[in-house]
């Protein structure tokens, strides 16, 4: 390496040890055909999944492809507003931007008729009482507040049915 000779005006000057270079880019997200149909369904208070023509599994929210078979999922399937808790997490840690009161429960819920759980909030139940196999139902926002977003379901709550048998959700934990 040749010796680095600084010009006189830079000698004895404190070296730059760090710089700050903020960057921001804005994007328009494309939901795609399948997910758009799902979101439009939500705006009508309907939950629409799609079935794989090969393995017959029903995905929700659909992304238009079966991740197992790599084929388009075109057959639409209307799902119930009830489901089964497959796994869950009791959140006890406060973090930036959090709107929920602690502790709260975030759960994976297998909607009846589907083969892929969605993540949502569980309310109207003590965190201590939440368990795998618990049967729950969707609580929607008032009709005049419904929009094409999963936030149109405020949360899920227990619906009082007996627990689902393990075999009915064991492939989704």
């Amino acid at each position: 390496m040749p010796e680095l000779v600084l010009p006189d005006r830079l000698r004895g000057v404190e070296p730059v040890r760090s710089i700050r270079t903020p960057a921001r880019l804005d994007y328009e997200f494309t939901a795609g055909r399948a997910t758009s149909r799902f979101l439009r369904g939500v705006a009508e208070k309907r939950l629409l999944g799609q079935r794989c023509p090969v393995c017959r599994k029903v995905y929700v929210p659909p992304r238009g492809a079966c991740p197992t078979d790599g084929v388009p999922t075109e057959e639409e399937v209307e799902l119930g507003h009830t489901g089964t808790v497959t796994t869950f997490c009791v959140v006890n840690v406060q973090f930036y931007g959090q709107a929920m009161e602690l502790p709260y429960v975030s759960a994976l819920i297998l909607l009846d008729g589907s083969d892929l759980p969605i993540m949502h909030l569980l309310q109207e139940v003590s965190a201590d009482d939440v368990h795998m196999g618990m049967r729950v139902e969707a609580v929607w926002v008032p009709d005049d507040e419904i929009e094409p977003t999963l936030e149109s379901i405020r949360y899920f709550r227990p619906n009082g049915e007996p627990d689902a048998p393990w075999d009915s959700y064991k492939d989704n934990v």
Partner: peptide, 25 residues
């Protein structure tokens, strides 16, 4: 391509490339 997400855009292309070789995945 505002209608299709990336996987929807790609799927027919993968299908056509495999079909062009006369093979499945």
């Amino acid at each position: 391509q505002p209608d299709l997400n990336e996987v929807e855009m790609l799927m027919p292309v993968v299908r056509d490339a495999l079909a062009g070789a006369g093979i499945t995945k």
